[in-house]
Design a protein around this nucleic acid. Structure first.
Lengths: 341, 341
DNA sequence: CGGATTTATGAAAGCGCTTACATACGGTCG
DNA sequence: CGACCGTATGTAAGCGCTTTCATAAATCCG
């Protein structure tokens, strides 16, 4: 009509190849149902017309989009970046594409993001953690959108995760074994964040098992700076010999603060992390932390979600964590100098 | 038909609200064109029916998807994770959603990803760097898909980036000024990667300006380990006093290797990075590096892409880099001990 | 107060594809 | 050799929405 050529459609291809639109469609979606000779003609026509199927039309007619969505708190946190990367790569390349949104740890925003992704045709969702307004789960259920929860475990909903409480408990156990009794914790913000809360509570419980409690607890937003500041406060106000951190970034910040305060790690103070991201092995000394299989979790989540999308059952997967005893832990300094020579 | 209620459609909403489908559509897409009274009725109907528009139908009829795409080499590299995060947040919340794919630095895979995103309805793309088969650009042009290139600069195509060569040149300039002459470089893989190549060439040119050349150059994949290994090799085979690294992760690896080899940094050897990601400020000593405004770049790219999608002109943006002189640089150790006391 | 505007809504024609279902055509087998 | 069957392709009916155009109602103004 206008001089600007409009895009080729199935009809154009069908006409040029001398077949019906149904055959063209079949060539694209179920090539084995078309004999090679015909298929060749069609493919040639597609090539010469530079044809690509219209996404909307295809989605409308087939009721499938091949889009799956993920909402994470932030990509700035390496654990999510790595998990998402693995998640994406676990899907068969051409078949699915990944729609990503980040919520900045804001429940309201997360909710909007979820709705936005579903509105954009996501046929399955990966979400982080369990903490969430029940209405959101209800909404998802109404729309029959399958989802899998990651970075957490133990819920009746489908998840691919690990046990935050058990992981931190193992770490606290080791610290207790070293002889520490004056222990503090720098935790991530626990509100609406079951991972952080699980770690804090798991640690507290482990301590309670030994008849102890934290000398101090700081709850701070994710970040190097916040970890450093929290460490300074804690040290200034409590006679602690060990600081358990809710994640590696907080621990790295604490470690930096310790250095700047002239404290030797681990001789003067023990500092531990959680996650075992890259950062943990470049601090000096290297960070004692808990390894979490973030990548593996991402791919397991992908596998599980695919099953759910296909209407199969799909079993949640619980991944193990592992204590990485590196260089930031040691027995507490003896205050009691009357000990045997 | 079946007992399983199928989803509500515009028709259902229209019927319940006692209006036409056109009005329902307008309520959703241009509320100001419907008087409040009517709008209320419609919204109520939408609520009671739990209606959400069908994505495919909407895309088909309106020829818009509200999906924009991005292909990065990997999310594991913090620079991309941060850039993407900012990119995503720069779009008006409900209006767009971000489709992400990672290419693992594989041009072939990148190409497939680009096609997959466009096939999924992406109406604009963010790509990393310029190096790319011209056929890809041709393809994009044919389909009239606007795109913006990030993390690089100087091309005639729309970009939001910075000058890799200038950034590294400033760093090399400083190292030369300190008196170093025996210099080596650990570069990222340059094939198909204009960022790495720009940094390597920029450094080489800066050196040539002082009549020098590198004593050694290692070209290695991204990673802490590869950086460490390259550093060991370089030190073992060349009498270098400074090692310029193509990025912070390589530099952090080199720094760790230096520590393990018993070298003091910066007294024995100067090590520099590029990017200024978090990691750069937790090494010990903190890394001397080049700051790149990754987040800012992400949001500028988003702004530019939106203009292009809207059919406006849109001007490329060149962001400045900045030398961050921290703790890993110093004058070279004097071999000549006859210097004045 | 009547004709000219403006504004709110409705009717209906697609958007470009997928997919029953129908058809045609060889080949099999009793 | 005819009834039957399987396979390759065609016909055409939607999928659920947006949008143009038409119409009806409200508003304005001389």
């Amino acid at each position: 009509m206008s001089e600007k050529t409009t895009h080729a459609t199935v009809d154009d291809v069908a006409a040029l190849a001398g077949v019906s639109t149904a055959t063209v469609s079949r060539c694209l979606n179920a090539p084995e149902r078309v004999i090679p000779a015909t298929r060749e003609k069609v493919m040639a026509a597609i090539r010469t017309l530079n044809y690509t199927p219209n996404f909307g039309a295809r989605a409308l007619a087939s009721r499938r989009t091949g889009i799956i969505g993920a909402v994470v708190p932030t990509l700035e946190n390496a654990v999510f970046a790595h998990g998402i990367e693995a998640f994406e790569q676990a899907f068969p390349p051409g078949k699915f594409a990944l729609l990503i949104a980040s919520s900045s740890y804001d429940p309201q925003r997360e909710r909007e993001q979820i709705e936005a992704l579903v509105a954009r045709g996501a046929s399955g969702l990966m979400l982080v953690g369990f903490d969430r307004d029940p209405a959101v789960y209800e909404w998802l259920k109404n729309r029959r959108v399958p989802y899998v929860l990651a970075w957490a475990s133990g819920d009746s909903r489908p998840y691919a995760g690990f046990d935050n409480e058990a992981g931190i408990a193992e770490m606290v156990g080791m610290v207790l074994e070293l002889g520490h009794t004056e222990i503090a914790m720098i935790s991530g913000m626990t509100e609406g964040n079951d991972r952080a809360r699980g770690r804090l509570e798991g640690a507290r419980r482990a301590l309670a098992g030994a008849g102890l409690d934290f000398r101090g607890v700081a709850e701070v937003p994710y970040g190097l700076e916040t970890g450093a500041r929290a460490f300074e406060d804690l040290i200034a106000n409590h006679p602690v010999t060990a600081v358990i951190c809710g994640n590696d970034v907080l621990a790295a910040g604490a470690l930096r603060a310790a250095h700047r305060m002239g404290l030797r790690v681990p001789q003067d103070v023990t500092i531990t992390g959680f996650d075992d991201i890259d950062i943990a092995s470049i601090t000096h000394p290297e960070l004692t932390t808990v390894r979490v299989p973030h990548r593996r979790m991402g791919s397991e989540a992908a596998r599980l979600l695919q099953q759910l999308i296909d209407g199969k059952e799909g079993e949640s997967v619980l991944l193990p964590t592992r204590l990485m005893a590196r260089g930031t832990h040691a027995p507490p300094r003896r205050k009691d100098l009357s000990a045997p020579a």
